[in-house]
C-alpha cells in the first residue's frame, strides 16, 4: 500500500539546565494512504512535538536534530519554507485541542472559511461562499447558510471544532493530524466529532494521525496504534494487537491502569509505580526500565530497538518472552 506519510529517524531536543536534551528520540513510522493511526502516550511523551514537526511548526528553543519526513513523494524538512507553505493545508492539515487557536475571535466564521478556500483555489468570493456553506453542512452545522455569519463567541466548543475541521479540510489535504482535538469536549460531543472525522476520512480517503492521551478514543477510532513513552515509540501495531495482546510492558501497564466503567471496582487499580522521567534525567538503556516490573540488568545498559515481535513492532528485549508468558496465563 502507498504511504501518505513517512517519518524516518526523527529526533528533537530542547534546552535544559544540563544542556540540550532529547525529547523525541529516533522516531520512525509511516501512515498508509487512507489509514487512521492513533498516537497515544501520557503528557510530555512527545506527541505534539512529533505532530508539529510534520507541519514544520517547530520553533526555537525546540530543535529538529535529525530525521526525514516524506509527504507523498516529497521530503519536507529539507524544503524551503516558501515551498512548504503551499503544502500546508493542501497536503497536510492539523486541528488542535483549542479550536480558538485556529480562529480569529473577531472575524465571522464564514469569512475565515472563505479566506482559507481562496488560499487553496482560484474561486471568486461568491463561489467560495457557496462552497463554505457546503463545507459547514458537511461537518454537521445546522442551518449553515445562517450560521456562516456567526462569530466564534456565538458557538459552542463542539461547533467551533467542526468549523475548524471544515477549514482544515477546505484545501483537500491528504493527511489530517488531530492533536487532542476532542479532549476539551463533553463526551457526547466528542463522540459526534470523532464520528464525523471518521466519516469524512472514509469519504475522502484521508490519512489521519489521531493524537490522544485517551486510550478509549484511540481504540475506537484508529486502525493502528503507536504507543509513545518519554520520546520513544515503544510499540506499534493494529488496534487488536495493542489492546488485546500488548507485548511491551509499558503498553500493558498503561492499559491496566485505565479506569473505565468496565473495570473491577472491588480491587485497587494496577497503577504504574513512579512517574515518567524528567526530561533532563532520562535513564540509560530502556526509557521505561526504572518503572518496569520485568526489568533485567541488560535493560539498563542497552536501548532496545523497535523490532518485529508477534506481528507488530515493540521496543523491549523481553517482548517475545513476555508474550508467551502472557499467552500461557
Amino acid at each position: 500500500m502507498k504511504n501518505a506519510l513517512v517519518v524516518n529517524n526523527l529526533s528533537l531536543s530542547v534546552p535544559s539546565a544540563k544542556g540540550r536534551v532529547t525529547v523525541v528520540d529516533d522516531v520512525s513510522f509511516d501512515i498508509p494512504a487512507g489509514k487512521k493511526i492513533g498516537l497515544v502516550g501520557e503528557s510530555g511523551s512527545g506527541k505534539s512535538l512529533t505532530a508539529y514537526s510534520l507541519m514544520r511548526l517547530i520553533k526555537d528553543p525546540v530543535q529538529i536534530d535529525k530525521g526525514e519526513i516524506f509527504l507523498g513523494e516529497k521530503e519536507i524538512l529539507g524544503m524551503s519554507m516558501k515551498d512548504f507553505r503551499h503544502m500546508r493545508g493542501n497536503d497536510i492539515s492539523m486541528i488542535y485541542q483549542d479550536p480558538m487557536s485556529a480562529l480569529n475571535p473577531i472575524m465571522r466564521i464564514g469569512a475565515q472559511i472563505i479566506e482559507s478556500i481562496r488560499l487553496h483555489s482560484d474561486l471568486d468570493h461568491g463561489q467560495a461562499r457557496r462552497l463554505a456553506i457546503e463545507h459547514l453542512a458537511s461537518v454537521g452545522i445546522p442551518e449553515p447558510d445562517r450560521r456562516i455569519d456567526s462569530y466564534p463567541f456565538e458557538m459552542s466548543g463542539g461547533m467551533l471544532q467542526r468549523v475548524v475541521i471544515a477549514i482544515a479540510l477546505s484545501g483537500e489535504p491528504k493527511v489530517l493530524i488531530a492533536d487532542e482535538a476532542t479532549t476539551a469536549l463533553d463526551v457526547t460531543t466528542q463522540d459526534r466529532v470523532l464520528t464525523l472525522i471518521d466519516k469524512l476520512a472514509a469519504e475522502r480517503g484521508l490519512s489521519v494521525l489521531l493524537i490522544t492521551h485517551d486510550l478509549g478514543v484511540a481504540a475506537q477510532f484508529s486502525d493502528d496504534i503507536m504507543v509513545m513513552y518519554a520520546g520513544k515509540l515503544v510499540e506499534k501495531g493494529s488496534v487488536n494487537q495493542i489492546f488485546s495482546h500488548p507485548v511491551h510492558p509499558y503498553t500493558k501497564a498503561l492499559l491496566d491502569s485505565r479506569c473505565d466503567y468496565t473495570i473491577d471496582v472491588t480491587k485497587p487499580i494496577n497503577s504504574i509505580a513512579g512517574q515518567p522521567p524528567r526530561l533532563d534525567n532520562r535513564p540509560d538503556g530502556c526509557v521505561f526500565s526504572p518503572r518496569c516490573e520485568h526489568v533485567q540488568p541488560r535493560c539498563r545498559e542497552g536501548v532496545p530497538p523497535l523490532i518485529s515481535v508477534q506481528d507488530r513492532l515493540a521496543a523491549c528485549f523481553r517482548a517475545e518472552e513476555l508474550f508467551h508468558v502472557e499467552m500461557v496465563k
Binding site: G140, I141, P142, T188, Q190, D191, A219, Q220, F243, T262
Partner: peptide, 25 residues
Amino acid sequence: VGLLSSVPLATPSATKRSREQVQAL
C-alpha cells in the same frame, strides 16, 4: 444512556452501543 454509550472504551471488540441518537446539533 446517551452518556454511557458515548464513552469510548479501550476494548476494540466492544461493539459500540447505540449512541445518543439525535445526531444533528
